[in-house]
Simulated assay, not measured.
Amino acid sequence: MESVSELVNLSRLLNDFRQYWFVAGGWAIDLFIGDITRVHKDIEIAIFRKDQSSLREYLFGWEFTKVVNGKMEPWNEDEWLELPIHEIHAHTKNTLFSELEILLDESSQSEWRFRRNLNIARPLSMIRLRSDIDVPFLAPEIVLLYKAKNPRSKDEDDFYRVCRLLDEERQVWLKQAITVCHPGHYWLRELHAS
Rank of each mutant, 00 (worst) to 15 (best):
P140R: 01
Y20C: 12
E77V: 10
K154G: 03
V162D: 03
N117V: 01
L55P: 03
Y186T: 15
N94D: 14
Q52W: 00
L103M: 14
I45L: 12
V23E: 02
E101V: 12
F137W: 00
V8T: 10
R38Q: 11
K154S: 13
I33W: 00
V135D: 04
S3I: 05
S153P: 11
D78V: 04
R56W: 07
S11L: 01
K93S: 07
F64Y: 11
W80C: 08
L96W: 12
C181W: 00
A177T: 12
E63S: 14
E44G: 14
W112C: 10
Y186F: 14
E141D: 14
R128V: 15
R18G: 10
E2Q: 12
L174S: 08
E101F: 12
I102G: 08
D155Q: 02
E73C: 08
D42H: 00
H185C: 01
I178C: 03
R122V: 11
Y186S: 15
K147V: 04
C181F: 01
W62D: 04
R18N: 14
N150Q: 08
A90P: 08
E44C: 10
R170V: 00
P84T: 02
D158N: 09
W75V: 11
Q171V: 10
D30T: 09
L10D: 08
L14T: 05
I29P: 05
A28D: 02
S131M: 07
M72D: 13
A121S: 15
H89F: 15
V23Y: 02
E101I: 12
L118H: 04
Q19W: 05
E156P: 00
I36E: 14
E73H: 05
E73L: 13
L14N: 06
I120S: 05
D155R: 01
N117Y: 01
N9E: 15
V172F: 03
L138P: 10
S11P: 03
A193D: 15
Y186N: 14
